[in-house]
């Protein structure tokens, strides 16, 4: 599924604009970066509340298609800069991890 579809349906806020649209192959939800590192698959969206720069490092290493930060966590500027530098679209939403995961899952399966 295209990232733009998910962003449009879930009304996610982009932390940086002008990202290229890309394919998203399901998602991985976790706040434990070691767990993400070990189990997330290339192309998946990363759904988490870990709003800091290290999340971008992990996302880039496993090849995330995007990062979705839940619970409207404040995103530090250096995280946005890092995401932009690694060309990883970064979004923030009021919804929690459960809701975002469920919505992405439903979209993918429909």
């Amino acid at each position: 599924m295209f990232l733009s579809t998910i962003v449009g349906r879930l009304l996610l806020d982009s932390c940086w604009q002008a990202w290229d649209d890309r394919h998203v192959s399901h998602a991985y939800t976790s706040d434990l970066l070691s767990d993400v590192m070990a189990n997330a698959q290339e192309g998946q969206a990363l759904i988490t509340i870990q709003a800091h720069k290290n999340t971008v490092a992990v996302a880039s290493l496993f090849g995330a298609s995007c990062i979705i930060i839940c619970n409207q966590r404040a995103i530090p500027d250096d995280m946005i800069a890092a995401a932009k530098a690694e060309n990883i679209p970064l979004f923030v939403t009021k919804m929690n991890q459960y809701t975002v995961s469920a919505k992405v899952y439903m979209l993918m399966e429909s």
Partner: peptide, 9 residues
């Protein structure tokens, strides 16, 4: 709290 130190390293 930063998401590290889960004993998986």
């Amino acid at each position: 709290s930063l998401g590290f130190g889960a004993g998986m390293g």
